[in-house]
Simulated assay, not measured.
Amino acid sequence: MNYFQPLALFFLAGLCEIGGGYLVWRWLKADQPVWTGLLGVLLLAAYGWVATLQATSFGKTYAVYGGVFIVMSIAWAWYFDGFRPDRFDVIGGVVCFVGIGIILFWPRA
């Protein structure tokens, strides 16, 4: 089984969704220019398209992506907003990654 492709697509989807939401947030909350919000909207639309490239069903794709989104959001906040994750944030992220692995890669009978 190829593990890299679905994980890369989930990562790309996360960048599109979180990055797009962040740009819209900056436009509306931090007085950034309108092009910032427009770029954010384009990234959010790209997120919807990237998610369709997954080989799994809609429900399974979004279930796995939920865990990816949680971990990437914590990392984004740490890098861009100066949020310092504590041990419970890290433990929660690890639990999410374990869940992602079980849902996406556990052998089915």
Rank of each mutant, 00 (worst) to 15 (best):
P33N: 00
C96G: 11
F11A: 15
K60Q: 03
A8C: 03
G21M: 04
F97D: 00
V64E: 01
F105H: 10
I100G: 03
V95S: 06
A55E: 12
A46D: 11
W25R: 05
P107N: 11
V71F: 10
V24P: 05
F4Q: 13
G101M: 10
G48H: 10
Q5V: 15
A45Q: 08
V34R: 14
W35A: 02
I102L: 11
F88A: 13
G40D: 01
I91V: 14
A45G: 13
Y65V: 02
G82A: 05
Y79T: 14
F80W: 15
I70G: 01
V68W: 01
A30R: 05
C96Y: 13
G48R: 11
T56H: 03
F69G: 09
I18W: 05
R108I: 09
G101W: 07
Y62D: 06
R26I: 02
M72E: 12
A13E: 01
S57I: 06
Y22G: 07
W49P: 01
Y22S: 12
G20T: 11
N2M: 03
G21V: 04
E17F: 05
L9Y: 08
F10M: 14
M1V: 13
M1W: 12
D31R: 10
F97W: 03
L42R: 02
K60L: 03
G48Q: 10
L44G: 07
A77G: 09
M1C: 11
Q5C: 12
F97A: 07
F11R: 14
F58K: 01
P33Y: 00
P107G: 10
D81S: 11
Y47S: 06
W35S: 03
R108L: 11
F105P: 09
A63G: 00
A51P: 10
C96K: 10
G48K: 09
V71H: 09
G14H: 07
L23C: 09
P6N: 09
L53Q: 12
C16H: 11
L44D: 05
V64I: 08
I74L: 13
S57Y: 07
W49K: 02
A8N: 02
M72C: 08
V64Y: 01
G101Q: 08
F10N: 13
V34P: 06
D31I: 01
V50L: 04
F69C: 10
